[in-house]
Design a protein around this nucleic acid. Structure first.
Lengths: 334, 334
DNA sequence: GGAGTCTTTGCATTCGTATGCAGTTTGGCG
DNA sequence: CGCCAAACTGCATACGAATGCAAAGACTCC
């Protein structure tokens, strides 16, 4: 069991001081080529690997980023998770993952801070103001991903949800739809709020009322239930805007397989996110695409601005979206 | 910026020694109620939070589990990730995430070990024997999730892929299919190997040949391409077994939307994994269900056996699978 | 009242690495 | 050859918390 090889042991073997070993493994430090070689040899022979924990302790930087997530069943998030983690790895940082349960967000964030993460990315859940303050006090940058809390000291990266919602309204109206419905995600999520507000603004612009509205809670079942409810009304909608793709799939299944309704002939359906499945032929979902890669890039660069440059003021990045026309919504004739 | 509050500062404020503060935050340590109270008060006033990094250094245990993953676009893995991370959190451990690129697995695992993780779960990629040895030397338990490397010193948790493959063969044969095809995942993955071997064994049992075979590489495109190829043959298959659901969706899309083939009337399709989408009505995929929760539970208990009990011999858990009958495969008449 | 037990406390040390400082060597250049 | 700068090296200390040890206090029990 050579489980614990320390720099001191390597130093002894290479017949140098522990400092020399440390310097060999510190990029940019001053070590003579010969010394470095001896140290490297000794290190390899003993199977030495610098202890990142000890390094963190002394340097005050753990090179770990805390990532808080939930709802990994919505495919948007796994993809973000994967790419974000990869982007961080490429820069020598790693991801400490926290899955937040509805109740214990504060508790979890507390533990996360105990691990001395250099920054926090929240890809789910909203930051309670108490916690935001704690992070601020601890000088730990926080980036809200795909959500936004006005008046909080946290940075955020979102796409233009309002514009996306507006765009959907315009598109449906241009296609001649009159009876519009909206299936909301979670009432308290900022994405839902903005998407809905944009959609509503589009209706208001032409004086059209929103005829149906239900809350799907970002779940498959909730969306399915909402759809059933809409279609049972004496005046069912002829177009449904769904707060995200994950729910839109359930809407499509319920309409087509459950109720035998033709899409888009009888009802148009538009989602939001443009997850890969939306492009799969069984769905062919017309949807609003979030610029996932750009959002991740923005997140990473924002993070590093704060971590390495020491940039301080809080920024809110809002990236443009685009409507992807596929087969679930009637196309405007023009 | 009270960013760095240490136990020493709390001690001074509470007028006790640093040891007392440490003991207050160490469950089971001996502290007088009054002292504990004073420490807690001081800690709250200063916003103290024990430094997990420092704790790890002295205790030799980081309470972090390294999780190596990839292919998060196959929904099976995000779900595993979420539940596994949650299960670990519940026991006071956290997940350090590593996304492995095809090339740099060894590099990444190297860095992961530098973080002094207490154990490693590999949910993707196979452990190179060099790394396996390193982990063994470092006395770090390794659990291979959903993959198995014979003759390696690593523990593994899998489902009975061979039995699953066999079961599919039996099912298709019982339904009267004669022209069978298989779409493989990655040739070198143990899941693919076992699923295929089981399937082949089923064919061998009745002397039926495998008429078509192609490698889909676990990708959507690969599976789609394979399907096209099969159907263009002069004797196309009447049943396709696909190495996982993620590819099976592509097969269905290609058959139905791309080629206008009726499923299951003209061709039966069976997948493997039973991801949530398989149950969605647009697909209604007949598939082999892996016992995800049981696999996770097994992984966690195996991990803790080694971490806290100190159990040493390597174990291989193999859990039973079950065929889920839905709408993409013709049912045997019996 | 005294001896023994148990609890509580502080001191000092430890974990493994990084780094300021001072000392030594080397090399360049006049 | 001599001097100064630059490169290299080792010593000692620091990071923040946990813990063995011994001392001191609190109690019990006879």
């Amino acid at each position: 069991m050579k489980s614990k090889v320390t720099s001191a042991q390597v130093a002894k073997r290479a017949d140098v001081s522990q400092s020399a070993v440390s310097r060999t493994f510190t990029p940019g430090a001053s070590v003579a080529p010969g010394t470095r070689q001896r140290v490297m040899d000794a290190a390899r022979e003993l199977g030495y690997r610098p202890n990142a924990i000890a390094r963190s302790l002394i340097s005050g930087r753990s090179r770990m980023i805390g990532l808080i997530a939930a709802y990994l069943d919505n495919q948007f998030y796994p993809i973000v998770l994967e790419r974000l983690a990869k982007a961080l790895q490429a820069r020598g940082y790693h991801t400490l993952l926290f899955i937040s349960e509805p109740g214990d967000q504060d508790d979890e964030l507390e533990k996360l801070l105990a691990y001395q993460v250099d920054a926090v990315v929240m890809a789910s859940a909203t930051l309670s103001s108490a916690l935001a303050k704690e992070c601020l006090d601890a000088a730990i940058p926080v980036v809200l991903f795909n959500r936004d809390v006005p008046n909080s000291p946290a940075n955020s990266v979102t796409s233009d949800n309002f514009a996306g919602g507006r765009c959907v309204a315009d598109y449906l109206i241009a296609a001649g739809h009159k009876h519009l419905a909206y299936i909301a995600g979670a009432e308290d999520s900022s994405t839902n709020r903005d998407r809905e507000a944009g959609f509503q603004a589009g209706l208001d612009a032409v004086g059209l009322p929103l005829m149906h509205r239900a809350v799907g809670g970002y779940t498959h079942e909730g969306a399915s239930e909402a759809t059933r409810q809409f279609m049972a009304a004496k005046q069912p909608p002829d177009a449904i805007f769904v707060a995200n793709d994950h729910m839109a799939f359930a809407v499509l299944d319920t309409l087509r397989q459950g109720l035998g309704v033709k899409v888009p002939e009888e009802v148009s359906v538009i989602g939001f996110d443009d997850v890969p499945q939306a492009a799969w032929r069984a769905y062919g979902l017309t949807t609003v695409a979030q610029p996932t890669d750009a959002m991740i890039e923005a997140t990473v660069s924002l993070l590093f601005d704060q971590l390495e440059v020491g940039h301080a003021e809080t920024t809110r990045r809002c990236l443009p979206v685009s409507l992807i026309e596929r087969d679930t919504a009637r196309k405007p004739s023009s």
